[in-house]
């Protein structure tokens, strides 16, 4: 399953809920304000690193660039463009947006 999160982790519990519920082996894509979660030094970096033991984490590159943080992605988080976003929805049989 592809889990899509779009909220800043420091302001909203969506990422926590997603990580709590995502089955091992799932993929998580951070878009919009959730891209802050993919940046080194953010208070939730540890959480993302821990999650990456069981989950694959992706971040939407254009959203990261828009926010001036392209150069600060946590190692191991893969950046994708909108085409990559489309591919992720195809690679997984189902998806959920954690609104």
């Amino acid at each position: 399953m592809l889990h899509i999160v779009n909220k800043s982790p420091l302001q909203n519990g969506a990422l926590d809920s997603c990580l709590r519920m995502a089955k091992a082996g799932s993929q998580v894509l951070l878009i919009e304000d959730a891209v802050y979660a993919a940046t080194a030094g953010n208070a939730c970096e540890g959480k993302i690193r821990a999650a990456m033991q069981n989950l694959q984490v992706f971040v939407l590159g254009p959203d990261l660039a828009a926010r001036g943080l392209s150069d600060r992605v946590i190692e191991g988080v893969s950046s994708v463009d909108y085409g990559g976003f489309v591919e992720l929805t195809i690679a997984n049989p189902n998806c959920q947006s954690w609104l």
């Binding site: 779009n6 254009p62 085409g83 489309v86």
Partner: peptide, 26 residues
Amino acid sequence: VNEGPYQHQSSDSAYLFCKAAIEKGH
């Protein structure tokens, strides 16, 4: 699409997703 334009990015994200999907032949 669950949010209005300009107020929230969701409409932009949805549009760019659609465009990318179509460009890939979907």
